[in-house]
Nucleic acid binder design. Structure first.
Lengths: 172, 172
DNA sequence: TGCTTATCTGCACGACTTGCAGATAAGCAA
DNA sequence: TTGCTTATCTGCAAGTCGTGCAGATAAGCA
């Protein structure tokens, strides 16, 4: 995602209006590495601009996505998450915290995949599920910088549902 | 997923009852390569057993998943899809039809990924998005060529809103 | 055949999004 | 600065996908 200023210009050039809501959201998304959901971003935005509507957050994120400034991520059925990093990268999902980290893989094109005959690949996305050891209790650390992707799923494990985010006292 | 008979035995051994609904669903899922959603499976099941409840389909699929007989797939925010293939494999998603194909990748462990320090990978899942060129289907799927995963996303293309998996009409 | 209780079915409800329509307020002209 | 046009914003209803509940059914067994 480009800088808020550049995006502001892009908006103007497209005849769109620059509203304080949009500017706030540009700023909150720029460089944001938390891969927030619309709700999550809404909560942060609400602190700085009480009254902003969740609907506006959804709309603005959709616009940014349509402009190619951010990407959508659908990890494990929860809410969609947004990523301002549109470089060629992948993700690591911490199963216990729900956190998502950007992961760069430099040799995807070397994958030996048996694709259906005649299948043209537009995009490849890889998700590494696991967990981040925040406080290594034992002396086992500094594993890798360019680690080989450990081993693959051994067996389908009992459908872990993504940690539900707390919903603000919403009700309908 | 093992055969319906074996699963039936497994159910009995766990003290669960073998109902005609479950038996039908075991049969419909066994060897099913369409990666159906609960709704899709429900529609097929309804033809053979009018009156079966969608709720029952969800329940039975959840049981099978908990038993490790099938896997869940969350592709692009639509409904969850179920896969009776629990081998170590990945998926190719046809962006225009929504079809999902199983893909075997034999050198995942060679991926050079820059994972966060201390991140322990439990599972790696790869999704190849693109489309299948349908035409001249003369010979069988005899040739399983090991094609290198084509090139990666050149650039995040303006996030084309996922064609909102047409809920009902889709998977039939 | 009868009994216990696991299942099934139907429905309401919750999470996440999107469609709508009236209220607001950018952007521009005078 | 004032006015005007109309893009946006906000609030709410509605739609999709799943899950919780509770009464009706029907497996499995004596």
């Amino acid at each position: 995602m480009r800088s808020p200023e550049i995006i502001a210009d892009a908006y103007r050039n497209e005849g769109r209006r620059l509203t304080p809501q949009r500017q706030l959201l540009f700023a909150l998304m720029h460089g944001n590495e938390t891969h927030p959901s619309a709700e999550g971003l809404y909560e942060v935005a609400s602190k700085r601009m009480p009254g902003i509507s969740l609907r506006t957050v959804y709309q603005t994120l959709d616009e940014l996505a349509a402009m190619g400034e951010i990407q959508l991520m659908h990890c494990d059925g929860g809410a969609v998450r947004f990523d301002p990093n549109v470089d060629d990268h992948h993700h690591a999902l911490d199963a216990s915290t729900g956190e998502v980290f950007d992961v760069y893989v430099d040799n995807i094109d070397e994958l030996r995949a048996k694709l259906p005959e005649g299948f043209h690949v537009d995009q490849v996305s890889i998700v590494f599920r696991g967990r981040l050891a925040r406080h290594a209790k034992s002396s086992k650390k500094s594993s890798t910088q360019k680690s080989p992707a450990q081993q693959q799923t051994a067996r389908a494990k009992p459908t872990t549902r993504s940690p539900r985010r707390t919903s603000r006292g919403n009700n309908k």
